[in-house]
Design a protein around this nucleic acid. Structure first.
Length: 107
DNA sequence: AAGGTGACTCAGG
DNA sequence: GCCTGAGCCACCT
């Protein structure tokens, strides 16, 4: 139950990310942890790995601004299509402008 | 119970 | 900017 709630919250937050913007795992973890006092960046990653097919997981990047190494090319392609600000080399996301404020569904 | 693993993060060199 | 080491949380063997 609880883990379902956690997963639900994570997916909800990820779905909340507007096109052309991204959120870091830490931010998502904070957004979720704001209500459910647990979980961390790693748990967010695990959840997305399991259920990522149902949400725009490519809008979730790590603190370095790089999408998961497992789908780097795919994520970058999708982000580029969405008009997400990438670095000049196009290998990472320009967090400075792409990162969006934490948005929690329950608040 | 103990140790290893991973879609992570931060600090230091 | 890049690589290392330590910290972190939940899960699996």
């Amino acid at each position: 139950m609880v883990d379902e709630e956690y997963v639900e919250s994570v997916l909800d937050v990820v779905e909340t990310i507007p096109p052309g913007s991204v959120m870091t795992y830490g931010d998502v973890a904070e957004a979720v942890g704001r209500v459910l006092r647990r979980g961390g960046p790693r748990q967010v990653g695990t959840v997305l790995r399991e259920t990522g097919g149902a949400v725009p997981w490519w809008r979730v990047v790590n603190a370095q601004g790089s999408p998961p190494a497992h789908h780097l090319s795919r994520a970058l392609g999708l982000l580029r299509e969405e008009g997400c600000p990438l670095t000049p080399d196009g290998s990472k996301v320009h967090l400075r402008s792409a990162r969006v404020p934490v948005d929690v569904p329950g608040v």
